[in-house]
Design a protein around this nucleic acid. Structure first.
Lengths: 155, 155
DNA sequence: GTCAATGCAAACATTTTGCAACTCT
DNA sequence: AGAGTTGCAAAATGTTTGCATTGAC
């Protein structure tokens, strides 16, 4: 899982976001600040509605539409990444100050295991070069059975 | 792109599907046959609604719900694969009789470039072994700029 | 004849949008 | 002051479901 992140990194992310907004003539509002903070304090993958629920529990009343709009901005500016685990909602994770990683997803129990993306990045560069493609990012997931479920099903 | 596939392969796929259905006490109906045929004759990635439109154009009147239900079965039986390009609809491709491949997606123009998945499969096995995870499949996409768009944006 | 499949429309879940009121800068 | 932002509720999107009718085996 994405690990909880130091206050220092959170402040840096805020600066990145503020600058990103300023560059486009957009405003750093109280809502955007609160949403970024909620995102950075999450150490799990989350969905938009989940983040909203979390914020409401802590009496941070922001509208649903604002959360969706702000997440989109955070993705654009690279602080947040979209992950597609299921066919339903989009999942998000903050990646700012984290090592790049990808996920293994257990088909049986849904468990998520992260792994370092270093080798994947190397491979993607080689593959892209062959097609004269300029790789900027990737999405990678390994689907299968985690150790527990494998043992359970062969037992 | 998935290449158009020989009539022989199509017949084999039909057999696979029929057997899959029989094994579960399900029926090989005219609708399912028509949908499988439409899928196998597609050589592009498609969406459920697109397939439906295509079939209607050729006066193959099947209900939308039936298409969704049948695609789900085809995925289960391994003839069709889900691909998640965007955050919106699921895309599908038939993979029966095709070499395993993954995709590069151009962020600017949306162009899809396929590449052989051999190296990815090797890498996923190594990575999975580290976590005692049993890899069964993967999803991989490289996002970036295709040659045309890279030239256009640097010019 | 039985049990499953179909088609339709209604339901559903998630995300986006229009708009009047508001708030950063 | 003015352009962008918010929240709400309505709309849109993509997919699923309930149910009466139809069809495969």
């Amino acid at each position: 899982m994405a690990r909880p992140v130091s206050e220092e990194i959170i402040r840096t992310a805020e600066n990145v976001f503020r600058e990103f907004l300023r560059d486009r003539g957009l405003k750093y509002t109280g809502e955007r600040e609160k949403i970024l903070s909620a995102v950075m304090h999450t150490d799990e993958h989350f969905e938009a509605e989940e983040l909203l629920r979390l914020m409401w529990q802590e009496s941070n009343r922001v509208g649903k539409a604002t959360v969706y709009r702000t997440l989109k901005l955070l993705v654009e500016c690279g602080i947040v990444k979209e992950v597609h685990f299921s066919n339903k909602q989009v999942h998000y994770e903050h990646t700012y100050g984290q090592d790049p990683h990808d996920h293994m997803v257990c088909r049986r129990c849904g468990r998520i295991i992260e792994f370092d993306a270093g080798e994947v990045v190397k491979l993607r560069t080689v593959i892209a070069a062959h097609a004269r493609f300029h790789a900027l990012s990737h999405r990678f997931q390994i689907l299968g059975l985690c150790e527990v479920c494998r043992k359970a099903s062969s037992g």
